[in-house]
Design a protein around this nucleic acid. Sequence first.
RNA 1: GCGCCCGUAGCUCAACCGGAUAGAGCAACGGCCUUCUAAGCCGUAGGUUGAAGGUUCGAGUCCUUCCGGGCGCGCCA
Length: 606
Amino acid sequence: MSLMQELHTRITEIVVSEFGNPEAKAPDFDLPPEAAMGHLSMPCFPLAKTCRRAPRQIAARIAELLVDDPRVASAEAAGPYLNLRLRPADWFAEVLPSRLKGDAGEGLLPDEERRHVVVEFSCPNTNKPQHLGHVRNNVLGQSLARLLAAVGHRVTKVNLINDRGIHICKSMLAWQRWGEGETPQSSGLKGDHLVGRYYVLFAKKLAEEEQAWRAANGYGEKGTPEEEQRRSAAFEQASGLLADTRAMLVRWEKEDPEIRSLWSTMNGWVFAGFDETYRRMGVTFDKVYYESNTYLLGRDLVEDGLARGIFERHESGAVQCPLPELKLDPKVLLRSDGTTIYMTQDLGTAVERHREIPFDEMIYVVGSEQEHHFKVLFTILGKLGHAWAEKLYHLSYGMVNLTTGKMKSREGLVVDADDLLDELHSSCLRVMNESERRSDFEESKKAEVAAALADGALKYYVLKVNPRLDMLYDPQKSIELTGDTGPYLQYALARIRSLVRKSGLDPAACGDFGALGEAEEIELLKLLAFWPRQVLLAAEQRNPARLAGRIYDLARAFSSFFSAHSVFDRVEDPALAQQRVALAAAVGATLEQGLELLGIATPERI
RNA sequence: GCGCCCGUAGCUCAACCGGAUAGAGCAACGGCCUUCUAAGCCGUAGGUUGAAGGUUCGAGUCCUUCCGGGCGCGCCA
């Protein structure tokens, strides 16, 4: 048990014995708002009711009884708050070795709370390259998976690629019609970018067709909203391009060899492109599924539900699920022509997934615009009698908006993931080339470091924002490399590594910490002591942004310490140098763990 | 119309599920490299937390109403 835990237990004992309240449990320790107040604080308000005593009296009494505790250097009541100071040497001796070894400590869940968690994320379409929205998804999913694993869960990362459907046929049709046999090789384009180009081209040709159609029908002027809606619907019926696309989908479903061949060729290009982007971002999966293999799942499930009276047949012939508990209209699960829809597939996929991987919990990392869909999905699975439906969770994240407005992939108004990484890469290179300190870097080394920094800049930019919120992407700000950024964190870590290396001292060889005690050192100690709990909280709340903030706090505290004090150079007392190196190394190990949990690269030198 | 989410410094975001004086970065201004990495550090300035009520020892956080914004409510995916 850690010192903090011991003291917490001790305080609970005091509360029980002093105030005769067997139910009471001391509130969690907090950091006092001012360092001068002490190391730990505890508000005593929550105890007031059950102890039937004023908070300040409780704080005072606990302080009184703790003064003689050998683990405590000082204990005082500041009004209703209890402020404690530990003996720094003892606290350092406990925390530093533990952080150096990367012990999870309180950050590790007890065996009975560990689960097998499936995290499904990324799930791209094969009709376009990945953009910033996908980046947010990838980076969130990857980080969440690592966080959950870090606190003791077993995690399976899963990707379900949307590789079929009418939208895929659009890029296929455009390539077939206007591509003139262009390939990634002939064009020098990454496969996903090439296909994306034809998806955009399709949208352009369709818009032209619609314009011509409107002109021919005398719809030059914009009508009322109702009229416009009718016209759009009429155009959808009249469009030759759309009709051809639908025909292509039918041929695809009939496994027409020509269409299937075109499909696998173009998908192959996209997969190769995706692989490169994933590799670049350090995103990996334990299992990859393809919708072309799973899209038929679910029909039997619906038929079965119909037979069991859970679903009903509408007079049109469609099968639907009534949803009075959500106060919603019935959700159609099979169209009147018997075909399946998105929801049907998701139902089938979930059931199949649980059969294959008997998870305790599954997290879908999907944009917030699908909250309604998942609410309905989980409800229907529950109605079908799957107890695990309660263990499904939609990690809903907000949209990434641009300073110029919304992203629209059909119109090519997106920030492309690869382009953005390239831009960040050259920005990092430029800074390195301008720096005299880095004049001895080899060119290949520079490129390697720039890649790592670009990785950190992008991921941290995305991860530091609470997933739930929409975020704004500002191209100017995102290539900033100073201040609250990924490179700042990576830089702090690289400095520590260099420092420890140059000191020639073994951080682990340090047994005594009596020389430490400067304000900046204590600040670091507190952050390190709370670290395992922060990891646990971030995992519990499924919020990497929480951890990102704590990593930044730690890096900033170290930078302050580093500016204020010499670690070993010109430090007279060898014991002090040794202890400061151990402190630096412990911070380094923690930063390293934190960055790893965010999926951010940690270059040795910067 | 109904449902969900958001509104904090000029801008982008924090605030450890209700705790002490709401914090960072960027932008602005002023300092700090013959010493362990200046992608750094220190300082100045910047706020009626959209508005009004309420709940309580205590509210940016919870409740109500209003204002403003986003996203949904397909036999599309």
